[in-house]
Simulated assay, not measured.
Amino acid sequence: MSGAVRVEHLTTSGTFSLDGQTFDVDNNVWLVGDDTDVVVVDAPHDAEAITAAVGGRRLQAIVCTHAHDDHVRQAPALARLNGKGVPILLHPADREVWELTHPDLSTTDLTPGEVISIGGTDLHVLHTPGHTPGSVSLYSPELATVFTGDTLFQGGPGATGRSFSDFPTIIASIRDTLLTLPPETVVRTGHGDSTTIGDEAPHLAEWIDRGH
């Protein structure tokens, strides 16, 4: 028996650099799997710590919610530590952002509408651009969970004041894609605490006003 599919959480600390600025950050790492197989959502600052969380399970894929360096810096090392053939999945619209950190390494394209299956549970790939052009969210109806990376946080949208980002686009992604999910859906974010779609939906108008 491989056990029930579950969501596991790890926090790692390091830096985020873009546009000539560097910040200290804490990043969430999410693992989705059972006792046999697992996928990792984002691979920030500590490949060894993530590998320890994977344990003896088969790492099926590293899924990047977007290509900012604090989410992908350790993806190649994590793949190497867990054996040959572990794919790093990234939306192709974030290729230019990826190359800021890994100019000589390729990824496997992540396609909107694609379904990543792990332990009999499906993760649906939703294209949610705005924070970056290729930002994605991963929705599991069975787990009543969506992994939003830096698109939606507790309290509002991700930052859009830097290169490759756009505020109207992130608002459209949240309004037209994420807020259409059931209100009880747990939002597991790239940084900070989790929330729910139902808790965030009433504040859309406030976020739009703040962005003007």
Rank of each mutant, 00 (worst) to 15 (best):
M1W: 00
M1H: 07
M1R: 01
A4L: 12
V5D: 02
R6L: 03
R6T: 01
R6D: 02
V7H: 01
H9K: 09
H9W: 05
L10P: 01
T12V: 12
T12E: 09
S13P: 02
G14K: 12
T15R: 10
T15N: 08
G20C: 13
Q21Y: 12
T22Q: 15
T22E: 10
F23M: 14
D24F: 14
D26I: 15
N27Q: 15
V29C: 12
V29L: 05
W30R: 03
V32E: 00
D35A: 13
V38D: 00
V38L: 03
V39W: 02
D42H: 09
D42V: 00
A43W: 08
P44M: 12
E48W: 08
A49L: 05
I50V: 10
A52Q: 14
A52G: 08
G55T: 00
G55S: 09
G56C: 02
R58K: 07
L59R: 04
L59H: 05
L59F: 01
A61G: 05
I62N: 07
I62C: 02
V63Y: 03
T65P: 06
H66A: 04
H66M: 06
H66P: 10
H68G: 05
D69V: 09
D70I: 12
H71E: 13
A75I: 11
R80S: 15
L81R: 15
G83A: 06
I88T: 15
L90F: 04
H91E: 04
R95L: 15
E96K: 06
E96Y: 03
V97I: 14
V97E: 11
L100N: 04
T101C: 03
P103H: 00
P103V: 08
S106E: 13
S106P: 10
T108G: 03
L110E: 01
L110T: 01
P112T: 08
G113W: 04
E114T: 04
V115Q: 11
I116S: 10
I116G: 07
S117Q: 09
I118E: 06
D122H: 09
D122M: 02
L123I: 01
L126I: 12
H127A: 13
T128N: 10
H131F: 08
H131Q: 10
P133E: 00
P133R: 11
S137R: 02
L138Y: 10
L138F: 14
Y139W: 12
Y139T: 02
P141C: 13
L143S: 03
L143K: 01
A144S: 12
T145H: 01
V146Q: 05
V146F: 01
V146S: 11
F147I: 06
T148E: 06
T151H: 04
T151I: 13
G156E: 05
P157T: 09
G158K: 07
A159P: 10
T160V: 10
G161H: 09
G161T: 06
S163N: 11
S163L: 13
S165K: 05
T169N: 00
S173L: 06
I174D: 11
I174Y: 07
R175V: 03
T177D: 14
L178S: 07
L179V: 13
L181Y: 11
P183M: 05
T185F: 06
V187N: 10
R188A: 07
H191R: 15
G192A: 15
D193Q: 11
D193A: 15
T195N: 05
T196G: 15
I197C: 13
A201V: 14
A201Q: 14
P202T: 08
P202H: 15
A205R: 12
A205I: 09
G211N: 08
H212N: 01
